[in-house]
Amino acid sequence: MIELFGVFLLALAVITAIGVVQARNLFAGVMLMGIFSLLMAATFFLLDAADVALTEAAVGAGISTVLMLSALALSGAEEKARSRSRILALIVVTVTAATVIYATFEKPRLGDPNAPVQQHVAPWYFDMTQEAIEIPNVVTAVLSSFRGYDTLGEVIVVFTAGIGVLFLIGAAAPKGRASPSQGDLPVGLKHHQPIRVVGKLAIPFILLFAFYVQFHGEYSPGGGFQAGALFAAAIILYGMLEGEATALSIIPAPVLFAMSAGGALLFGGVGVVCMLLGGNFLQYDVLLAGSPVGAQQMGIIAIELGVGITVAGTLLSIFFAFATRDQS
C-alpha cells in the first residue's frame, strides 16, 4: 500500500524534474524545484526516514526556495537561449544514467532481510544504541556518536560551502553604497500590514520549534541540521518582513561568521576534550567520570549544538550576502 503511494510520488517527481529542465522561465523553474523538494520529502517520509524528510522540508522546500529567489532577483527572468551543440553533454548524461541504472540491478530490494546492511551493521547499531547511549532515536545516535567523524566532516563541508559562496558573491558590502532599497523606497514588506502582523506572529513559534527540534533530537526526528535551518528560516522571515538592514542590526554579519566557524569549532573542541580526558577523538564516554551513558548523551547534545550553530550561521550569511548585494 505504502509502496504504491511511494511509486506514485516518485513518478510525479520525475515529471517535475522534466518540467524544471524544460522551463525557460526561471521563476517557473524555481517553483517546480520547490514542488520537487516537497515530493521527495513526502517520499522520504513514506520510506520511514523521518529525519531525512525533516531536513528536506527545512532546507529543500524552505531555505533553498528563498535563496533561489534571492539569486533570481539579481539575474534575468528568462533562461538564455543556447545555440551551441549539446551532444557532448547528452552523451555524458546518458552514460552516467546508464551506469547508475546498471548499478541498481545489483542493489538489494527495499527491505530485503538478506541485504548485507541488515546482517550485521544495522542490528549492531540498534543494540548498541540501547546499550551504550539509551536514546530512542537511533538516527541521532548513529549520526552523532557512532559516525561522529562523518558528521564532523559534513559540518566542515557546510562551513566551507558558506565560505565559497561568500567568496564568490562578496561577504562585506562596501560602506556607503547606494542600495536601491534605501532612500524613499519602502523596505521589505513593511507597508503590508496583514502579512507583517501574521508573519511576526509566526516567528516566535518557528524559533521555539527550532529549539525543540534541536534539543529533542535524541527522542524525536530532528537534530542540529534541521534546527539550524529552522532557526535561519525564522530570521530570514524577519528579514523579509522588516528589511534586511533591520535583521542585520539584530544579528550583524560578524556574529554570523563567528557562528559558522564557532559551531564547527565546538564540534571539534568536544573531540579534543575527549582526547585530553584520555579517550579517543570524539569518544564521548570519557566526558563524565563514572557514567559513560550520561557522557554519551552530553557529548551528543554538545555536538548537535555545534552543528545547529554552524548551519544557522552559514545559511544566514549566504542569505544576507544575496539580499544586501547591489542590483548592478
Binding site: F45, L54, V66, L189, A202, A233, L237
Partner: peptide, 26 residues
C-alpha cells in the same frame, strides 16, 4: 509523534510564500 514534520512543513511553506511575495514586490 511524526506530526512534528507536518508542523515544520506548515511553518516553512509560509516562509516560501512570503519570499515569493517579496520577490515580486521588490
Amino acid at each position: 509523534d511524526f506530526i512534528d514534520l507536518a508542523i515544520t512543513y506548515a511553518l516553512i511553506n509560509f516562509i516560501g510564500v512570503i519570499a515569493v511575495l517579496q520577490f515580486f514586490y521588490s
